[in-house]
Design a protein around this nucleic acid. Structure first.
Lengths: 341, 341
DNA sequence: TTGAAAGCGCTAACAA
DNA sequence: TTGTTAGCGCTTTCAA
């Protein structure tokens, strides 16, 4: 498994090894003739440049850390896919790690990334306190936060306009004829969730609707928790004709509970999600939802990170993307449909 | 962003830098007292060892390549999650890349992995020809194939017993009272799919059933293709009471087509999948399926790779895991239910 | 246009 | 127990 080095090639070519280096790097300080000869030889000898050695002297590994809470989450994995493609196209590779939504692990991962000399990291924060916990690392390592809105924090992030998305959602349900819309399942402490809730509240205010919430002790974003919470909620007499779920996974939990309770969606109850994860497009699920532009988020994340890396002067950037509504089959006209407003 | 090195620490401590190295590596050739002193100083100075430099001299990056066709595929992302956890617990990190099921890209990725000096790679092959295409690299880089059964090839792989899984599936449907079971959607050329089809055929033979197939020109494993194929199939008069789909994604396609055609599952048609991807457990989907033990596959993959890496003598290994049946709601009793056999 | 030599941050063999 | 030194494979001045 002994690999061939630049020295071996130099020896075989009868030149110094700096000459080989020059041929490889496409330096102009070399005659076209020797370059050709050396390049040909490299091929023949099956030479592959040692990126690690190069990284040492170049002080750049061309490696980007990607820390997410769980690759297995469809929202993140979709973004991860695009990040990989995008980064690779620009000559970078990805070191992937899962924090499992554990703040201490996340901290350790930053330590690890610094040791590995990655050029920068992209992070789906494990929670709202991440920004604080990680602060000591943020000026040692260019970082861009993904998915979470950090408001005015002086760090780069890319996020969707959660406020606006929630606002749009309420408007959509309103236009369908719903006047009693319940907001379901906001994760505590998350700014993203906070903004969605604010958007919901603002839309209710502007449209003269009464805001209704269901979010007691909601510890996580998952189908299971959504289900448990919905099970209680749906067992009581409804004071709403539509549910706006804080996330698609929450909505899926609601769907499951409704299924078990024999409540038809959208027949008896309209359901709107947020995120547009892949599951939501599945047959029989067909969830109408607010879409986060995931490919765009990936692309913006890579771009702003590389910007900061390649351009010392580049400061942080806040990129807030616009969500869109994806209409499928989980929302039906409400009681006020067709009525004059 | 200038980082503090071992030399800085040595200087501050007034010792040579090999002494610092010894303190850090927990070498016994150092007095407990100086070790303490140096370790404390490292903390104070915020020293983080440069893994890249270490890798150069140790000739080991503690980096593992993970090449999959698409992180965004729920089957692979689930395994990827467990691989990361497992590898990290053993001191390794993962470089993740997507081949997008493109053989040439896959080849390039191996080239890249060699340049990056990874200690080994885990691969979800892009196709059946991968083993051939990649042969030149396989003795340069310890590799374990995941998911695909390579039969007798002299390379490590971990895969589920696809033959047995398919056999089990037919038995299950038979026991439910089905006598006309159609096998749906095998991907061309894939050994995995070949084995599943063989298991299906063998079970039919043993149980005196007539094998029926539906797999014309099936280019890929996806919901969309499953849907297109099923749309044709289900429009014709059925000669079967149950469909055994080659993969869960295929099954989801069938489900969608059935939905559109007003064919009830499991009321009019039983549907069995293979893989147990996460989608399959979703409310309203509830697909009964043959499960691939994904966490176990991840763990075995990491173990056998590290075995080969850490133990020069270790040869290749073939690990064939046992599938299990996960019963949900997509299969109902068939016409022969309760009847004496 | 080419070669010689220094050095990136670290480990390890050898000396002291 | 500690220090000195060589060297991992590469890029990049500086000389020739």
């Amino acid at each position: 498994m002994k690999s061939v080095t630049i020295k071996d090639v130099a020896h075989a070519a009868g030149v110094s090894y700096s000459t080989v280096s020059r041929a490889l790097s496409g330096s102009p300080e070399i005659s076209a003739e020797t370059r050709e000869r050396i390049l040909k030889l490299c091929k023949e000898m099956n030479y592959t440049a040692n990126t690690v050695a190069r990284a040492m002297v170049m002080k750049s590994t061309k490696l980007l850390g990607l820390i997410l809470t769980d690759v297995n989450n469809p929202f993140m994995s979709e973004i991860a896919y695009h990040i990989d493609r995008q980064a690779r196209a620009r000559g970078y590779n990805i070191i992937l790690c899962n924090s499992s939504r554990n703040a201490e692990q996340e901290r350790e991962l930053f330590e690890l990334m610094i040791g590995r000399q990655v050029d920068g990291v992209m992070l789906f924060p494990s929670g709202p306190e991440s920004y604080e916990t990680l602060r000591p690392y943020l000026n040692r390592l260019p970082t861009v936060f993904i998915g979470e809105n950090l408001r005015e924090a002086p760090e780069s992030y890319v996020s969707v306009d959660n406020y606006r998305g929630a606002y749009m959602g309420v408007e959509y349900l309103y236009d369908l004829g719903h006047r009693d819309i319940l907001y379901f399942g906001r994760r505590r402490g998350s700014t993203t969730h906070q903004l969605r809730a604010e958007g919901y509240a603002a839309a209710c205010r502007d449209l003269h609707l009464t805001a209704q919430y269901c979010n007691n002790a909601f510890p996580a974003t998952s189908i299971k928790y959504g289900y448990q919470l919905a099970k209680q909620l749906l067992s009581q007499k409804p004071t709403y004709t539509a549910i706006f779920a804080a996330t698609d996974t929450n909505a899926l939990g609601v769907m499951q509970a409704a299924e078990e309770l024999g409540i038809g969606i959208p027949g008896q109850l309209s359901l709107l999600g947020f995120d547009n994860i892949r599951y939501s497009a599945l047959p029989r699920i067909e969830l109408t939802t607010i879409e986060q532009p995931k490919k765009m988020m990936a692309s913006v994340a890579v771009d702003s990170l590389l910007d900061r890396i390649q351009n010392e002067m580049a400061g942080y950037s806040h990129r807030i993307l616009t969500p869109t509504l994806v209409e499928r089959s989980s929302c039906a006209p409400g009681p006020a449909a067709g009525r004059a407003e």
